Simulated scan of single mutants.
Amino acid sequence: MAMQFYASPEQVQRDRSEYARKGIARGRSAVVLTYEGGILLVAENLTSLRKISELYDRIGFAAVGRYNEFESLRRAGVRMADLNGLAYDRRDVTGRALANAYTQTLGAIFSETQKPYEVEICVAQVGADPAADELYRITYDGSVMDEPGFMAMGGSAEAISTVLKERHDVTADLATALAVAIKGLGSVGGENGSTRELGAAQLEVAVLDRRRRGRTFRRVSGAALESLLKGGKDQPEPERGDATAPAPADDKPTISAASVDKEGHEEDKK
């Protein structure tokens, strides 16, 4: 009869933690920070797969690690937010509630399954002013931390956080905040410890714009991102509700063909 190897619960937890940390460290980092106009989310991303997304009206999501795992968490968060918003009120959907749900999910996966999730996520909620902004970091084991205005995720998070701590300013405009985020991301990963220059093609950028009504999430890409990288001003696209509806065409029918009384026409013919 073969005997099973014994491992103490402490050793099992240490092995799972090491496994998850190594998996997260292999990916590229992401930065989330507050600025005068809202919350900025920046990720180093060379693929078309999204690391930054919208969860609800004023709530954003950023993640690093294994894509299929944090994508399943994102979809679950969107479903939870939609259900709560429909069942109660849209104002009842908060970043704190979603962060608590992610904490319970990741904590259960870490403790009860053979393989932990190799992810680290951020739930960000923009407020009416910078003091009301909320940033929650949730790690692979279900731990949650309320971050003070900025945070970095990924294998080089500590080095990036050092740069952010020195340069972060809640009163800065979007161009300045983006320069700080890129400075932090570029401070690691170079040859022999040198810094890197990151361009628009290497970045995924989005903001939670506190000036917008309803859905505050918007992506910054293309010419708008290029302009910001050169120090230009933010030029957001107009909100969908502000767009003027096109006028109806002159020859557009106003009566449906299905509304014609066919029986009446047959009687007239008789």
Rank of each mutant, 00 (worst) to 15 (best):
R211A: 13
G199K: 00
E36W: 00
I39F: 02
G149T: 07
L208E: 11
L33C: 09
V93N: 12
F70N: 00
L174K: 10
H168W: 14
R210W: 10
K51T: 01
Y88A: 12
N84R: 15
K51R: 06
E237D: 14
V32G: 02
G60F: 06
A87G: 05
R58C: 02
S187V: 05
R74H: 15
E166W: 04
Q235L: 15
A172L: 03
A132I: 04
N100S: 13
R211Y: 08
R66A: 11
Y19D: 08
A76F: 15
V220D: 06
M1I: 15
D268L: 05
E10F: 08
E10M: 07
L225E: 14
E239Y: 00
I109V: 12
R219W: 03
R50Y: 03
E204K: 08
R16W: 09
G241H: 13
K252G: 00
Y56M: 01
N84S: 08
K233C: 00
T195H: 02
M153E: 05
A128K: 09
D146M: 02
D234T: 06
D82M: 13
P9Y: 14
A76V: 11
I138N: 07
V180N: 13
P148G: 09
E54H: 04
L198M: 07
L229Y: 06
S161P: 12
D57E: 11
